[in-house]
Amino acid sequence: MHQPHKSIIMKISLVVCLLFVGTWITKKGHFSATDTPFEAEIKAFETQDQQSPPPQNAIVFTGSSSIRHWENLSTYFPGKPIIQRGFGGSELSHVLLYADRIITPYHPKQVVIYAGENDIAMGKQTGRQTFDRLVALFTHVRQKLPDATFTFISIKPSPSRRQYFAENDTANQLIKDYLATQANTQFVDIRPIMLSKNGQPEPILFKSDSLHMLPAGYERWGRVLSPYLK
């Protein structure tokens, strides 16, 4: 008589537990199976790979629009096999979500990441939460690609996002300190070459939105990054 009632209670408890875990995972920066932002862009990459196989033993550049909008990326690094996989206004959590579709399948010798800026400005994450997301991404990539060099480009000082500079600095410092404890990693600080003598970001490097970069900005990035590429 009481067994069906007990069974129903157990099932309800299990559902509640699963909902709680799902909510916790989302807050940690991961996504449910039905939450797939930027899916169209990822599928376009996969179609591109089918039509034109990517180079072997390459360097994958991925992350947010600062990578996506980097026109003629490979020309900045002559002789380097580059695969450009920046997408949307992505956050570190999105890069993790799609890592097994846009990073690990290529078995690259190096992974270059620019993300984190949108986590703070759009995802409303703190610097520490953004760092936690980076650690989750790094851990996943390192497990799948133990021999690949992992390179993180510091979060840039975009003039339109001055209110987030403190959180950006926190994230950058935590990430830099963490990667220094891990083998075969690099933290590339591009902030110094983007600042004027008064310590403010140089407007000539940015488009009218004061967020995305002009070729002048990418030229500076290219000069700083070049020595780090394998």
Score class of each variant (00 low, 15 high):
residue 196 S to M: 08
residue 214 L to I: 13
residue 186 Q to G: 00
residue 207 K to G: 15
residue 190 I to C: 10
residue 175 I to C: 07
residue 159 P to R: 04
residue 161 R to Y: 09
residue 214 L to D: 01
residue 217 G to I: 09
residue 183 A to Q: 08
residue 198 N to W: 06
residue 200 Q to K: 15
residue 170 T to R: 09
residue 181 T to H: 07
residue 180 A to C: 01
residue 175 I to Y: 03
residue 154 S to M: 08
residue 193 I to Q: 15
residue 210 S to W: 09
residue 204 I to M: 12
residue 212 H to K: 04
residue 176 K to P: 00
residue 196 S to V: 08
residue 193 I to F: 13
residue 185 T to P: 00
residue 181 T to I: 11
residue 220 R to E: 01
residue 189 D to T: 03
residue 175 I to W: 03
residue 166 A to D: 15
residue 162 R to E: 02
residue 183 A to C: 00
residue 184 N to C: 00
residue 180 A to P: 00
residue 204 I to S: 15
residue 178 Y to M: 02
residue 220 R to A: 06
residue 199 G to S: 12
residue 177 D to S: 11
residue 158 S to T: 13
residue 179 L to S: 01
residue 187 F to C: 07
residue 168 N to P: 02
residue 200 Q to C: 08
residue 191 R to Q: 13
residue 155 I to G: 01
residue 200 Q to S: 07
residue 213 M to E: 07
residue 189 D to S: 04
residue 165 F to A: 02
residue 217 G to F: 05
residue 220 R to G: 01
residue 157 P to V: 08
residue 200 Q to P: 04
residue 165 F to P: 01
residue 209 D to I: 07
residue 198 N to S: 14
residue 199 G to H: 06
residue 194 M to D: 06
residue 178 Y to D: 05
residue 211 L to Q: 09
residue 190 I to G: 06
residue 174 L to Y: 06
residue 191 R to I: 14
residue 224 V to H: 03
residue 156 K to A: 05
residue 154 S to C: 07
residue 185 T to L: 04
residue 215 P to R: 09
residue 184 N to S: 01
residue 210 S to M: 13
residue 222 G to A: 11
residue 213 M to A: 04
residue 181 T to V: 10
residue 218 Y to E: 10
residue 221 W to Q: 04
residue 156 K to G: 00
residue 187 F to I: 15
residue 217 G to H: 02
residue 180 A to T: 06
residue 161 R to T: 12
residue 193 I to N: 07
residue 160 S to Y: 09
residue 165 F to H: 11
residue 156 K to H: 03
residue 188 V to G: 03
residue 189 D to L: 03
residue 212 H to V: 12
residue 223 R to P: 00
residue 162 R to K: 06
residue 191 R to L: 11
residue 156 K to N: 02
residue 181 T to C: 04
residue 154 S to P: 01
residue 218 Y to C: 03
residue 224 V to Y: 08
residue 167 E to I: 12
residue 156 K to Q: 06
residue 209 D to P: 05
residue 196 S to Q: 10
residue 176 K to H: 12
residue 156 K to L: 09
residue 197 K to I: 13
residue 176 K to Q: 15
residue 184 N to F: 01
residue 155 I to M: 12
residue 183 A to K: 14
residue 186 Q to P: 00
residue 210 S to A: 05
residue 165 F to G: 06
residue 216 A to E: 13
residue 206 F to N: 00
residue 198 N to K: 02
residue 167 E to Q: 08
residue 223 R to H: 01
residue 169 D to H: 10
residue 210 S to Y: 13
residue 183 A to W: 03
residue 195 L to M: 13
residue 160 S to E: 01
residue 222 G to V: 08
residue 190 I to T: 11
residue 204 I to F: 12
residue 197 K to A: 15
residue 158 S to D: 02
residue 192 P to S: 11
residue 185 T to W: 01
residue 163 Q to F: 08
residue 199 G to C: 08
residue 185 T to K: 03
residue 189 D to V: 07
residue 174 L to T: 13
residue 219 E to W: 04
residue 201 P to H: 13
residue 178 Y to T: 13
residue 210 S to C: 07
residue 171 A to W: 08
residue 223 R to G: 00
residue 209 D to C: 05
residue 172 N to G: 03
residue 174 L to E: 09
residue 163 Q to I: 14
residue 177 D to T: 15
residue 209 D to V: 09
residue 187 F to M: 05
residue 182 Q to G: 00
residue 217 G to C: 05
residue 213 M to K: 04
residue 192 P to I: 10
residue 177 D to L: 04
residue 212 H to S: 04
residue 219 E to V: 09
residue 222 G to I: 10
residue 221 W to H: 07
